[in-house]
Design a protein around this nucleic acid. Structure first.
Lengths: 223, 223
DNA sequence: GGCCTTGTTGCGCAAGTGTATAAATAGCCT
DNA sequence: AGGCTATTTATACACTTGCGCAACAAGGCC
């Protein structure tokens, strides 16, 4: 016989708190990124996402028209975060162009940019770029913005060395530098433990400076 | 009233041909890769794959224990194809080391290696590497094999120039060269039309030769 | 030609999917 | 304190998914 003072009815409806709209959207997007990174696009069901966000599945449709839109916003958030953080190192300091370039490379080849979760998300979404023009465009814009930043610093670096490359050479330098950083980033994300701490950044800086024909600093010169 | 000579009964069972075991397995794997590239891991259902292969879904279970195993075999096939084709340019010719290295770069930065379908597959599967150790191991083995090949040619190239790099320098060169090629490959796959034909290969060769400190050939020298 | 093996189909099933919608309640406003 | 409303839960629904299984027939063998 149940105690008359039992405060918990058998079929109690789940307790919940009301959150501000922006907070909930943020939480749902974060839960989406977590789910995609962990289970892939296939395993990231609305119920999985909702569970991770601490709500029930139906709520998602209160904030997003459908799953498609949720994924798109999540991807936009990811891209924004990546490019924002990546470009920060370029503008923050008031050091020499060469130092800023080195800082940029270093920033991109260490945590938190080198991170398996971010890589999983990057690869998962980009795998759909071939079939989804919206994704492809989002990537291209991010990539071009990134490359233009690189090109600008490269121009400054070379100008500081009294060199006057033409537009084509500048473009090629930027493309190549961008490629090394991307490639090293991938290797670091996928097999970070194969490299010593700071090794990838050292390789990257050396490769970039060699590409630009900068004279090696004394302490790094080959014998 | 149906014609008595009508040769097609209303509920005719589908006609089919028996194929050799190896042929069917190949077809199913190919259909799997096609489906994954086009619809992603989520959209590549057994029924989609079977439709593409020209069979019914039930047959797949006659050749594979489950979907998981089918996907794993498909990925293994893909990796095998990529590394095989990539390494072919290295060993085929009896040219100078420097020419073989250039041919290797060129081969990796043109069709059929630069291909949106292959990239989609690569990214889609690799997006799961963070959560699936089997995938991560498969990638690492392919990557290391690839890098070792690069390192071997680099050693030959430098030896032909009378230079004696130590093991660490050799390793760093191989890592950097591998990274440029990977980065340029990605850019070519995702935004091939942003580059002139052969431009990526030219950028790659120049970057690789600069990385190794090779004197530029006359016709490519900067003015 | 007729049989026998087994590759192949067709169908059913339980679980899970995204979406729709009604019912409940948390928290602000007065 | 008490009502209003928007947020949240809960449930339903049509559909797809991977898998199991029995019936069927294609093609080699005698």
């Amino acid at each position: 016989m149940p105690d008359a003072t039992d405060p918990a009815p058998m079929n109690a409806r789940r307790k919940f708190r009301r959150e501000g709209e922006e907070r909930r959207r943020q939480d749902l997007i974060e839960a989406t990124l977590d789910s995609v990174a962990e289970y892939g696009l296939q395993g990231a069901s609305l119920r999985t996402i909702a569970l991770r966000a601490g709500v029930t599945a139906g709520l998602i449709r209160h904030y997003f028209p459908g799953k498609e839109e949720l994924l798109q916003e999540a991807y936009a958030t990811l891209v924004g975060r990546m490019t924002e953080h990546a470009k920060a190192a370029l503008v923050a300091e008031d050091a020499s162009p060469r130092q800023r370039l080195a800082a940029f490379v270093t920033a991109n080849l260490n945590a938190p940019i080198i991170d398996t979760r971010v890589f999983s998300l990057w690869a998962t979404f980009l795998g759909r770029a071939g079939a989804d023009p919206a994704l492809a465009r989002a990537h291209r814009e991010g990539y071009l913005g990134f490359r233009n930043e690189v090109e600008a610093v490269v121009a400054e670096v070379l100008a500081a060395e009294q060199r006057k490359p033409d537009a084509s050479q500048l473009r090629h330098h930027a493309i190549a530098i961008n490629a090394v950083i991307d490639g090293l980033w991938i290797e670091g994300c996928l097999a970070g433990e194969m490299f010593l701490p700071g090794e990838l950044a050292a390789i990257g800086i050396k490769a970039v400076e060699t590409e630009l024909g900068l004279a090696p600093l004394e302490q790094f010169q080959e014998k």
